[in-house]
Amino acid sequence: MRPHFVPFGGGEVPETDLESSRIVVLPLPYEANPSYGEGSQDGPYHILDASTQMEAVDEETGQEWTDLKIHTCRPPSISPEPEKAVLEIEAAAKAILDKGKRLLSLGGDHAVTIGTARAAAKAYPGMGILQIDAHMDLRNSWNGSKFNHACVMRRLAGDDKIPSVAVGIRSFSAEERDFARQTGHQVFLAHGIDPKDDEWIDQVVSLLPENVYLTLDLDGLDPSVIPGTGTPEPGGLSYRQALDLIRGLGARRNVVAADINELAVIPHTHVSEYTAARLAQKIFVYCFG
């Protein structure tokens, strides 16, 4: 059952209107033609609901993240037609970014990123993208659409020529492999990341320009951390690896916007949505704070 809409953090976060806010949360309950598991359309509601259970103090920094002037928008109406949905999502993100706010979008399936990242790229020319994901998302078309979740980075890094780095990849087609090789698309495969050495984080960040958009597909983390996602792939990033990457990115680059997507909750357990909410809180602290 879909939870009712609540603002991020619930009663823990002081009410802040859009104009006075620093950070804006944009729920995007959109899903079209999923590849495997379904349910990401309700993901934003579950993340928001889980966020109400978090304490106000970030345990690593001691900062009260609830004081960061966070405003949560009501979910916009989104067309079920993929190409039209992308345009509507881009317009919703643009209205926020044009006000100079830091934007965190909550999907929905990964196709929402086509719209939000395009809006950010127009607001911040020369921007790059850091993609945390199990999949390359470099297919030219999938399930009858070029605006499917499996085509996100083909549209952004391919068509739009946005410099991008993908981390945690461990599942891809021959088409995607060949496209990455031919274009020099930067990919850090999950099996090549040393769990005992964080030098790879420096390498990832060094490949990105000053302004960065962070897209976090929850299947980029290992299913032992987040089992509730549409296509769980074994061998992903640990929670601490993902957190170290987010911290390193925020320390060395200007993160202008971000998204978290592809939550598909599992009944009778809250670990996936709560972890997603905690990752959002960490983005606030390390990238937007």
Rank of each mutant, 00 (worst) to 15 (best):
L97W: 08
L97V: 11
G100M: 09
K101Q: 10
K101C: 05
L103V: 09
S105Y: 07
L106K: 13
L106P: 15
L106T: 13
G108Y: 12
H110S: 11
I114D: 05
G115T: 12
A117T: 08
R118W: 01
R118K: 14
A120F: 10
A123D: 09
A123F: 01
Y124N: 14
G126S: 04
M127C: 12
G128Q: 10
I129P: 06
I129G: 06
L130P: 07
L130V: 03
A134T: 02
D137I: 08
W142S: 05
G144M: 02
S145P: 01
S145N: 05
N148Y: 03
C151Y: 02
C151Q: 09
C151E: 04
M153N: 09
R155M: 00
A157G: 08
G158R: 01
D159K: 05
I162P: 00
V165Y: 00
V165S: 03
V167H: 06
G168W: 02
G168T: 01
I169P: 06
R170F: 06
S173P: 07
E176M: 10
R177V: 07
F179D: 07
G184E: 12
H185G: 00
H185I: 01
L189F: 15
G192M: 08
D194A: 08
D194M: 11
P195D: 12
K196H: 13
D197R: 12
D198R: 13
D198W: 00
W200S: 06
D202L: 09
Q203E: 15
V204P: 04
V205W: 12
E210V: 02
N211M: 02
Y213A: 05
T215N: 02
